[in-house]
């Protein structure tokens, strides 16, 4: 009993209790709550920022997907237009070729016609020359009395002359 009386002092117990409760209430109001609030606010802010980052990442991914889609479309369109241009070029080349061919055909036909006309003209001229020469020969034969040898000779000369003219 003496031990308890020596070691337990009720006044001290009471003051110690008050001291501890004072620390508790002061810390609860001025330390624990502010610290807990700071931690909570920081956690919320970080969570919020993480959420924002997540959203932004999703947006970026969406945009990237859109851009890739857009690029793919552009590439497709470019390829399509290129192919169209190639086709158009080929078509034009074919047309030019066709035109050139038809023009050359026309020219050829024209030239052929001209040649035929010139040929007919030459033939006509030749006939006329032959007739003229025949008349001249006949005239000479009539005018001069020639023997058979002279006739032949004369005729050969006329032929040679005619060949030269042709």
């Amino acid at each position: 009993m003496d031990y308890f009386q020596e070691n337990i002092r009720l006044g001290e117990v009471f003051v110690q209790l008050v001291a501890f409760l004072t620390v508790f209430f002061v810390l609860r109001k001025f330390a624990w709550k502010p610290l807990a609030n700071v931690i909570k606010a920081r956690r919320e802010k970080l969570d919020h920022e993480w959420t924002d980052i997540g959203k932004m990442k999703a947006q970026v991914a969406e945009l990237q997907k859109e851009y890739e889609e857009h690029l793919r479309k552009i590439e497709d369109e470019a390829r399509e237009k290129l192919q169209e241009a190639v086709q158009e070029g080929r078509r034009i080349a074919r047309e030019i070729q066709e035109k050139a061919r038809s023009e050359s055909q026309i020219s050829f036909e024209k030239a052929k016609t001209n040649i035929e006309i010139e040929f007919e003209k030459a033939r006509f001229e030749l006939k006329r020359e032959i007739a003229k020469l025949s008349l001249q020969i006949a005239e000479k034969v009539v005018r001069e009395k020639m023997d058979a040898a002279q006739h032949e000779k004369r005729a050969m000369e006329l032929i040679e002359e005619l060949e030269k003219k042709l």
């Binding site: 070691n7 337990i8 001290e12 117990v13 009471f14 003051v15 110690q16 209790l17 001291a19 501890f20």
Partner: peptide, 8 residues
């Protein structure tokens, strides 16, 4: 001191 620990 026991008084302190009793208070706590």
């Amino acid at each position: 001191a026991w008084s302190t620990t009793i208070a706590l």
